Computed example of a mutant assay.
Amino acid sequence: MDRIHYRVVEHDGGWAYKLGDVFSESFPTHDAALARARQVARQQHVPGNAGAVIEYQDAKGEWHTEFSAADDRPEADVTG
């Protein structure tokens, strides 16, 4: 099983959580960003019913569509 790590960092005049090189929206306080990051991390553990079609944009700006079986959720944690 994969493991992902969200980090809370200063960003854009406030605070954000970050996964890899991708930032969330900005929050006015560290505590607000931390609370949202923890919520997002918890949601990683909630499996879907029968899966879903998902769309995402890669680092080159190209969009992809694929089926997610919803049985391969990563372990997630939050630091910062």
Rank of each mutant, 00 (worst) to 15 (best):
residue 29 T to H: 07
residue 19 L to C: 08
residue 34 L to K: 14
residue 57 Q to H: 09
residue 22 V to E: 15
residue 77 D to C: 13
residue 3 R to F: 13
residue 13 G to D: 05
residue 29 T to M: 04
residue 51 G to D: 10
residue 54 I to E: 13
residue 39 Q to L: 10
residue 61 G to R: 04
residue 63 W to Q: 13
residue 38 R to C: 10
residue 40 V to P: 00
residue 50 A to G: 15
residue 6 Y to M: 06
residue 67 F to S: 11
residue 71 D to Q: 15
residue 34 L to C: 06
residue 65 T to K: 10
residue 47 P to A: 09
residue 28 P to R: 05
residue 78 V to C: 05
residue 69 A to W: 09
residue 77 D to E: 13
residue 11 H to F: 14
residue 64 H to P: 05
residue 20 G to Q: 06
residue 46 V to Y: 04
residue 65 T to Q: 11
residue 63 W to D: 12
residue 74 P to F: 03
residue 58 D to F: 05
residue 74 P to N: 12
residue 8 V to H: 03
residue 72 D to F: 02
residue 6 Y to D: 01
residue 62 E to K: 10
residue 11 H to L: 00
residue 48 G to N: 07
residue 8 V to C: 05
residue 9 V to T: 12
residue 43 Q to G: 09
residue 15 W to L: 03
residue 38 R to I: 04
residue 34 L to R: 13
residue 43 Q to V: 00
residue 37 A to V: 01
residue 72 D to G: 14
residue 4 I to N: 12
residue 76 A to L: 07
residue 5 H to I: 12
residue 4 I to Y: 02
residue 71 D to T: 15
residue 74 P to D: 10
residue 17 Y to N: 02
residue 23 F to L: 05
residue 71 D to P: 07
residue 22 V to D: 15
residue 8 V to E: 02
residue 33 A to T: 03
residue 14 G to I: 03
residue 3 R to N: 15
residue 18 K to E: 05
residue 29 T to D: 07
residue 46 V to T: 14
residue 3 R to H: 15
residue 63 W to E: 11
residue 75 E to Y: 13
residue 37 A to L: 00
residue 17 Y to S: 04
residue 26 S to N: 05
residue 59 A to F: 10
residue 30 H to Q: 09
residue 23 F to T: 00
residue 25 E to C: 07
residue 5 H to R: 11
residue 11 H to M: 01
residue 26 S to I: 00
residue 29 T to E: 08
residue 25 E to K: 15
residue 7 R to E: 14
residue 58 D to V: 08
residue 72 D to W: 04
residue 40 V to S: 05
residue 38 R to T: 09
residue 7 R to I: 02
residue 42 R to H: 14
residue 9 V to D: 13
residue 65 T to I: 11
residue 34 L to T: 09
residue 35 A to F: 01
residue 77 D to M: 08
residue 74 P to K: 11
residue 49 N to Q: 13
residue 14 G to S: 08
residue 17 Y to I: 01
residue 26 S to D: 06
residue 52 A to I: 11
residue 53 V to Q: 10
residue 69 A to R: 13
residue 54 I to L: 14
residue 43 Q to R: 09
residue 61 G to V: 03
residue 51 G to N: 07
residue 61 G to C: 04
residue 24 S to V: 03
residue 64 H to T: 07
residue 36 R to Y: 00
residue 48 G to D: 09
residue 56 Y to F: 15
residue 28 P to S: 13
residue 68 S to Y: 12
residue 32 A to Y: 00
residue 55 E to K: 10
residue 13 G to A: 04
residue 47 P to M: 08
residue 7 R to L: 01
residue 60 K to W: 08
residue 55 E to F: 02
residue 56 Y to C: 09
residue 66 E to H: 05
residue 3 R to K: 15
residue 19 L to I: 06
residue 13 G to M: 04
residue 70 A to I: 02
residue 14 G to Q: 02
residue 18 K to W: 00
residue 63 W to I: 11
residue 60 K to V: 07
residue 12 D to A: 15
residue 78 V to K: 01
residue 51 G to K: 03
residue 59 A to S: 11
residue 13 G to Y: 00
residue 44 Q to R: 12
residue 78 V to Y: 02
residue 18 K to R: 15
residue 23 F to E: 00
residue 11 H to T: 02
residue 4 I to P: 11
residue 23 F to P: 01
residue 54 I to G: 03
residue 41 A to F: 00
residue 57 Q to E: 15
residue 29 T to W: 02
residue 35 A to K: 10
residue 50 A to V: 12
residue 38 R to H: 08
residue 57 Q to N: 11
residue 46 V to K: 13
residue 5 H to A: 08
residue 11 H to C: 06
residue 16 A to Q: 00
